[in-house]
Design a protein around this nucleic acid. Structure first.
Lengths: 138, 138
DNA sequence: ATACGATCTCTAGTGACTAGAGGTTCAAGA
DNA sequence: TCTTGAACCTCTAGTCACTAGAGATCGTAT
């Protein structure tokens, strides 16, 4: 049995975040000492590690809650879990696509300005004012 | 002179968002009719177009405020504007890098599961539980 | 016994909006 | 000129996933 601070150290999840996960229903409320302090065991550690890993992969709290629910029903089809992962994957891919377009545009805007002039003639500001200077849609 | 709804239509920025920008200090408070409704002119339209374009490129409200401030001082060096754009560019590149790592990991996790089994043996759930299954850091 | 870091709960703040309530104004048609 | 109804107004609260701070209590090492 260990404290919330110890759990925090072991998982690299901050203490207030752990309490937030409990409040959100992702973590079961743990046992308490007589003085009302939380005490965790290996199960709590494992659960939080799962959550942390999923968060690092960009899953939303809602999606994680669904995954945890599936874990609790080992007889349910695996398809659901796979659906959630696949949705997350296409979400990530869409974000990458969009960011790549932005990267191109920003690189172009930034390259057009050597930083020597005055803002009156600044290509950065001109580019932002006039969308027509952009090469593609974004 | 046109209404906030007309401005919204011309810029594709929603009406509450326009009011929010005004409240945030990005947009000057426009003239009002006798009945207290906002009336915009070409200057307001141009300003909002600038903001919209910058937001589409992922600049924060704070960065946009700085850019607008620079616009108001045409004698100031262009370097500052370029710095902001460059910072935004490296921010975007960092995000892309991170998302690509996530993409690989998610693709791997998702591929390992055909969706046919039951959750008990689900590779998606196993992967999320056990970080050691991951191929690289993320 | 005391000190002091860790913990507790609670409220409020973040960024960039979005939603809704409840009331007022504008403009077009009769 | 009157009426209707869409558009407008302000204000509050909600979103997501936390983060920060206040003020009080607890646990443990000396």
């Amino acid at each position: 049995m260990f404290s919330i601070g110890e759990l925090s150290r072991r998982t690299n999840v901050k203490v207030p975040t752990i309490r937030y996960y409990e409040e959100s229903g992702l973590l079961d409320a743990p046992e308490r000492t007589e003085g009302n302090q939380r005490r965790y065991d290996a199960v709590g550690l494992e659960r939080l590690s799962f959550i942390k890993h999923a968060r690092d992969l960009g899953f939303s709290i809602e999606a994680i809650a669904a995954l945890i629910d599936l874990q609790g029903h080992p007889d349910r089809s695996c398809a659901e879990a796979n659906d959630i992962a696949t949705a997350q994957l296409s979400d990530v891919r869409a974000k990458i696509k969009r960011l790549r377009a932005l990267e191109k545009e920003l690189a172009r805007i930034s390259k057009g300005c050597d930083g020597d002039g005055v803002t009156e003639d600044c290509y950065v500001l001109a580019s932002l004012s006039d969308h027509g200077l952009c090469e593609r849609e974004h």
